[in-house]
Design a protein around this nucleic acid. Structure first.
Lengths: 195, 195
DNA sequence: CCACAAAATAGAACATGTTTCACTTCTTTC
DNA sequence: GAAAGAAGTGAAACATGTTCTATTTTGTGG
């Protein structure tokens, strides 16, 4: 949610474009700088590393996705259906640009301590959505009822999110295809959200 | 299980030692080569990249761990206890050398298509152990009874493994501490393996 | 408008993963 | 044991992330 000046925006946009076209390794900072019409030093004035640029991109992309998904109440007649909807939308949204998605996963899992907070915020964003889906609320709105924060729902949504993430990483590494990601989440929610 | 010649072994050992001392970035291939008393070209004759060396290390480390855990029947009077034992042993075994563990996670999640098979084999190793734990068998032994391969147990063990992996990545990224990893797995097995 | 501080720039320089090369040392085969 | 090929070696070269520096541009208070 930080305000980015024009240069920072151009840098992130360029990085997204390059990652989308040819993946992580194609995000060469010299190219980013040149394409964004900015000096390399300016890139490093804004971002501490290549990973940070990509994390900023992830933040931007996921905020867009979440905004789209979170606008309306999650459709579905039971928790399981709603959860499927949310993860499906999330997965398909990311898969629309597979190379970008892989690059973002790589940054997410890089273990760089400097980006821990951004990773946590991404995590929180999804948790919010999944919990809203379980409860049948509109993710973008504050919770209607002051439900206890430490309930089973929180645990379940954390588990589902972990399953999704691990499976998504598996997809990014070529372990299996996108359908498997949805199937993994489906099976887990079946067991955890028995209607 | 490939047979590694002396040089390859020295290379991996050196990489492990460096990763253990100071983490991923400290595994400088020039240093690895020098310490292993080998030319840089020889390193690249054996391994296609730095990631591959670390994946070989992961294979070696996880085989050691699995051998140790899988020797005896998993202790515990119900599935939940046995699963806790397995993941606890796995987690603690890896956490004995945190920097190494972080470096290995990073390689695991790197998304490099060249190491997909190794990642899959690591995945399979753990699946075997978790399923044995659920069933109360000795992981090292072939299954006593010809249980159907596609059962609920397989799904549950896959979910638990995903939860463990995602939480472990979270630990590696500084998102939370090791106790949280075990707690996440615990909560999941509580819900999935209700005694 | 002017001086000056902050920001941007071009470009060199450095660190480290990866590749290449010319040369030497093994190993194998006869 | 000598020739041929495989493997190893040291060093250079290259690619790209990151840092540094000297210079120029930009924006701001007087």
């Amino acid at each position: 949610m930080d305000v980015m000046d024009d240069r920072a925006k151009r840098i992130v946009e360029t990085a997204v474009a390059l990652a989308e076209r040819d993946g992580y390794q194609a995000v060469r900072l010299r190219d980013v700088a040149a394409t964004a019409q900015v000096a390399l030093g300016t890139v490093y004035k804004r971002f501490a590393s290549k990973e940070e640029i990509l994390i900023a991109a992830l933040e931007q992309e996921s905020e867009k996705l979440v905004a789209k998904i979170g606008k309306k109440p999650v459709p579905g007649s039971d928790a399981q259906e709603r959860v499927r909807f949310v993860f499906s939308a999330l997965t398909k949204g990311l898969l629309r640009r597979p190379n970008l998605a892989k690059a973002l996963v790589r940054s997410l899992a890089s273990g760089d301590p400097n980006i821990t907070e951004r990773v946590a915020s991404f995590h929180g964003l999804i948790t919010t959505m999944v919990m809203a889906a379980i409860r049948g609320e509109t993710p973008g709105e504050p919770a209607a009822s002051p439900v206890g924060v430490d309930g089973r729902e929180q645990t379940v949504s954390s588990i589902l999110q972990n399953v999704w993430f691990a499976s998504f990483v598996g997809w990014a590494g070529g372990l299996h295809d996108a359908a498997q990601v949805l199937e993994d989440v489906d099976k887990a929610s079946e067991l955890l959200l028995a209607a």
